[in-house]
């Protein structure tokens, strides 16, 4: 595999051909914001937080889906990009009911952290206040649609890593919602193996562990890397 050299935010960096701007940037300590990307599963480019400017390209590019090229000049933190990201986070805050103070993920939520790092203390948009249920039918876990950002990490991890495909997306547009099986309560799902991977990857408090209190809700989002690497290298026992 060939090595490519490129410039990100004025820094000369190198990466392997086939790697994305996103992963090369993170390897070099440049943390491009993201919600839908998580290492170990496929990328869909849905959240649009990782958009970057690439010199010579008229359009912004999604870093998580754009492969590096020799001599590329990338900017990840211009005022224009910052303004866009801030508005995207505000749009999410207004879309459903994110009331952090009473959320099990308070302090461990990627959305909350994004808002904090961008200095969002109020939302300039009108809140939609949709009415969504909380599904607590599963013995160990819960699903609170009010806090879902529709990143589809849960759908992908369940399909690609666990192989169960319990989750999918129902409807479309603003009416989209995550479902298990034929839309039955999670507890009634026949395909769910109860592995809990979806809970681990969920960036917000939408999927949560019922047994844990607010303080204990620390998600280990790095676990996926190990599983996937282990699987690829056939390190499974048995």
């Amino acid at each position: 595999m060939s090595v490519k050299t490129l410039e990100i935010d004025g820094k000369m960096v190198t990466g392997m051909a086939g790697e994305t701007i996103f992963s090369v940037a993170w390897e070099h300590g440049i943390h491009i914001p993201r919600l839908c990307h998580i290492g170990g599963i496929s990328d869909v480019g849905a959240c649009r937080l990782c958009m970057v400017e690439v010199e010579g390209q008229r359009k912004l590019q999604a870093a998580c889906l754009t492969q590096i090229e020799e001599g590329m000049v990338v900017r990840t933190d211009t005022p224009r990009l910052k303004a866009h990201r801030k508005l995207i986070v505000e749009l999410l805050m207004a879309e459903r009911n994110h009331i952090c103070a009473v959320c099990v993920a308070n302090g461990a939520c990627e959305l909350q952290e994004l808002a904090r790092s961008m200095g969002i203390d109020h939302v300039r948009l009108r809140y939609r206040f949709p009415v969504f249920p909380v599904d607590t039918s599963n013995e160990r876990f819960g699903m609170d649609h009010n806090r879902c950002v529709l990143c589809t990490r849960c759908v992908r991890v369940c399909d690609e890593v666990e192989g169960a495909h319990t989750w999918d997306v129902f409807g479309r547009g603003a009416g989209s919602r995550i479902i298990s099986d034929l839309g039955e309560p999670w507890g009634a799902s026949e395909s769910c193996t109860g592995c809990g991977k979806c809970v681990q990857v969920c960036p917000t408090g939408a999927l949560f562990d019922k047994g844990k209190t607010v303080a204990e809700m620390r998600k280990d989002r790095g676990f996926l890397k190990y599983i996937v690497t282990a699987r690829e290298k056939k390190q499974w026992i048995g």
């Binding site: 649009r48 207004a94 009108r126 529709l150 603003a174 989209s176």
Partner: peptide, 18 residues
């Protein structure tokens, strides 16, 4: 556009509503 948005990406799904 709001009714026909597929809902995959955030700007279009929520932006058209606003």
């Amino acid at each position: 556009c709001m009714e026909e948005s597929c809902g995959k990406c955030i700007p279009c799904r929520t932006g058209t509503v606003q």
